[in-house]
Simulated assay, not measured.
Amino acid sequence: MSLSAAITGMGVVICGPKEIPDATGNTLSAISMAAQEAGIDLREIDGLLINQNELIADDHLTLDLSRRGAFGTLKVLYELESKGTTMSVLLKQATEIVNAGEADNVVVVFADAAISPNAPSGAAFASMGGDTGYRGLERAGGMLGAVAAYALIAQHYFVERNADIDDLFAVAQAQRSWAVENPLAWIREPLTREKYDAAPLVAAPLRRLDCARPVSGAAAFIVSKPNSSNSLNPVYVRGMAQRHTMRRRHAPHSPWRPVGASEVFTDALKQARTTADAIDNLQIYDAFTIVPLVMMEELGVVGPGEAGSFIAAGNTRHGGSLPVNTGGGQISGFYLQGATPLIEAVTQLRGQGGNRQIADASTSMVVSVGGRLESVNALVMGVQQ
Rank of each mutant, 00 (worst) to 15 (best):
V215L: 10
N233S: 14
P234E: 06
V202L: 15
N230L: 12
L232W: 07
P214F: 05
R193D: 00
C211P: 07
P234T: 06
N227D: 15
N230I: 05
V235P: 07
V235W: 06
G217C: 02
A198W: 08
A203Q: 09
A198R: 14
R213M: 12
S216A: 12
A212V: 11
Y196N: 05
A218L: 08
S224D: 07
A199M: 06
L206M: 10
A218E: 01
A198Y: 03
E194H: 01
N227M: 03
S216C: 07
A199K: 09
S231T: 14
S229D: 14
A212H: 13
R207N: 07
V202E: 11
Y196R: 04
N227C: 12
R213T: 15
R208W: 08
V237Q: 01
A199Y: 02
R213S: 12
I222M: 07
P214W: 09
Y196W: 08
R213A: 10
V237D: 02
A220W: 02
K225H: 12
S224G: 10
P200K: 10
R238E: 03
G217F: 00
L209M: 14
V215I: 15
P214G: 06
D197L: 14
S229L: 10
Y196P: 04
D197Y: 02
N230D: 12
S216E: 07
S231R: 14
R213C: 10
A220N: 05
Y236K: 10
R207W: 11
N230C: 15
L232G: 01
A218G: 03
F221N: 05
Y236G: 05
L206C: 09
R207T: 13
A220K: 00
V223L: 12
V235H: 01
P234G: 04
S231I: 06
E194T: 03
V215G: 09
E194A: 02
G217H: 04
Y236A: 08
S224L: 11
L206Q: 09
Y196C: 03
R238Q: 12
P205L: 03
R238K: 15
Y196M: 01
L209N: 13
T192S: 15
V235N: 07
R238G: 01
V237I: 15
D210I: 00
Y196D: 01
A219L: 04
A204W: 13
F221K: 04
A198E: 12
A212R: 08
S231P: 01
I222R: 03
R208G: 05
L201F: 14
A219W: 05
L206A: 14
R238V: 00
E194V: 07
D197S: 11
K225G: 02
S228A: 15
P214S: 03
L232M: 11
E194C: 00
K225D: 04
A199P: 09
R213D: 04
A220P: 06
V235K: 08
P226V: 03
V215K: 05
K225M: 05
A203Y: 11
L201G: 04
N233Y: 00
P214C: 08
N233I: 11
R208T: 14
A212P: 04
R207C: 01
C211L: 15
R193F: 00
R238L: 13
N227G: 13
F221R: 06
A219E: 06
D210H: 00
I222V: 15
L201Y: 13
